[in-house]
C-alpha cells in the first residue's frame, strides 16, 4: 500500500495552521471480546500466541489475559503431521517450542488451522505458510540533509519477489533489536511493489527497500554503532489487507492530513466462532521469514560516505 498521508502532511504543514484538542467521546458499553493474536513464522525457535480481552476505550488498565483450555495448530495439508500444541507459559501467553533448537514451525506450502478452546467457546482460523525469498544483501547509504530530513545513514535491503502473481509480504524493521512498531511503519508489499500491478518477480522497489528506517523528527536513520535487522515475511493476501487496515485505522497524524484521512472502521479479522457465545477479534497468519542484519561500524559508515561521493 502506498502511504499517502505523509505526502500531504509534508506539503501542507508549512502552509497552514490548524488546531487540535482532545475530547471525550461517549463510547458504548459493549461486551468485550476474546482477542487472538496469532502471528506465527518459521524462524527457528519458539512461537507465541497471545490471548487477551478487548477493553473499554477509556480504560487504561492492562489487557485482561485469557486462560484458554486448549490452543493448537493443525496441518490441514498433511493431517498425519502432529499438531503444534501451544502451552500457556504465563497468563494468556501460549508457546510452542520445537524439539530441537534448530527446529521451526511448519512446512512451506501447507495450510494450517488454528484451534482455540475456551470453555464452551471454540474459535478457528486458517492460514497458508507461503514461501519467502532470501534477502540478498543489506547496506547503509549516506544521505545528505535534504528537505525535511537531516544528514543520516539509511539502511536499505535487497530482495527479489518470488515469481508468480499475488505474493504478499510484510517488511519489519528493527533498530538495535527494537521493532519499529508504530503504525506509520507498517510496510506491506504486493509482488515486490505496492499493490497488485502487472509486474512480477522484480527487485523490491526503492521506497520499500528503505522502509526500515526511523523517520521521527528527532530520530532519523541510523548512527555509527547502531544495528539494523530486517525481517521479510510471506503473508496471505488477507493478512496483507489486514495490516493495511491497521495502518489506515491507527496511523493518524492529525493536522491537515485529516482532510484526506479515511473514516475509521473496524478491522476485518479472520478468526471464526465455531461454538459458544463469546465474540472474537484478532488474526491468525503463518509466515516464512528471511532475516538480515548489519551493524553500522565505522568502516561500514566510511564505505557509505565514499559511495555517496
Amino acid at each position: 500500500m502506498i502511504r499517502i498521508n505523509p505526502i500531504f502532511t509534508f506539503l501542507l504543514l508549512t502552509l497552514f495552521f490548524s488546531c487540535e484538542q482532545t475530547l471525550t467521546v461517549d463510547t458504548e458499553n459493549i461486551a468485550s471480546s476474546v482477542v487472538i493474536d496469532a502471528f506465527i513464522d518459521n524462524h527457528p525457535g519458539r512461537q507465541t500466541i497471545n490471548i487477551t480481552r478487548s477493553r473499554r476505550f477509556y480504560d487504561n488498565a492492562g489487557f485482561e489475559r485469557v486462560s484458554a483450555d486448549a490452543v493448537y495448530i493443525e496441518d490441514l495439508t498433511d493431517p498425519a503431521q502432529p499438531d503444534y500444541i501451544f502451552v500457556e507459559t504465563s497468563s494468556g501467553v501460549y508457546e510452542w517450542t520445537p524439539a530441537s533448537s534448530a527446529g521451526s514451525f511448519g512446512m512451506v506450502g501447507h495450510d494450517y488451522q488454528l484451534v482455540v478452546i475456551d470453555g464452551d467457546s471454540e474459535f478457528r482460523s486458517i492460514s497458508t505458510l507461503n514461501p519467502v525469498p532470501v534477502i540478498d544483501s543489506i547496506r547503509f547509504n549516506f544521505e545528505e540533509e535534504s528537505g525535511f530530513f537531516d544528514e543520516r545513514f539509511e539502511a536499505e535491503f535487497f530482495a527479489t519477489d518470488l515469481s508468480g502473481f499475488g505474493n504478499t509480504y510484510w517488511i519489519k524493521g528493527f533498530k538495535n533489536g527494537i521493532f519499529l512498531d508504530k503504525p506509520e511503519y507498517i510496510t506491506t508489499s504486493y509482488d515486490g511493489g505496492f499493490s497488485a500491478s502487472n509486474e512480477d518477480g522484480i527487485l523490491f522497489i526503492p521506497p520499500l527497500r528503505t522502509s526500515i528506517n526511523p523517520f521521527e523528527e528527532d530520530e532519523q536513520g541510523y548512527d555509527t554503532g547502531d544495528n539494523v535487522r530486517v525481517e521479510l515475511l510471506s503473508i496471505t493476501e488477507d493478512t496483507f489487507l489486514y495490516l493495511n487496515e491497521i495502518f489506515t485505522q491507527t496511523s493518524r497524524q492529525g493536522g491537515i492530513s485529516e482532510i484526506f484521512s479515511v473514516p475509521v472502521t473496524n478491522l476485518n479479522g479472520n478468526i471464526e466462532v465455531l461454538s459458544g457465545n463469546q465474540s472474537v477479534l484478532g488474526f491468525f497468519c503463518t509466515s516464512s521469514v528471511s532475516i538480515a542484519k548489519l551493524t553500522l561500524t565505522e568502516a561500514v559508515a566510511q564505505q557509505a560516505i565514499e559511495r555517496a561521493n
Partner: peptide, 23 residues
Amino acid sequence: FTVMNETYEIAGYTVYNGDRSRN
C-alpha cells in the same frame, strides 16, 4: 463519524473496535 468503543492489541499494535455500526 464511527465511534470506537474498545481497544485491543494485535501484532504489537493497539487497535480499535466499534459495535459494527457505521457513522
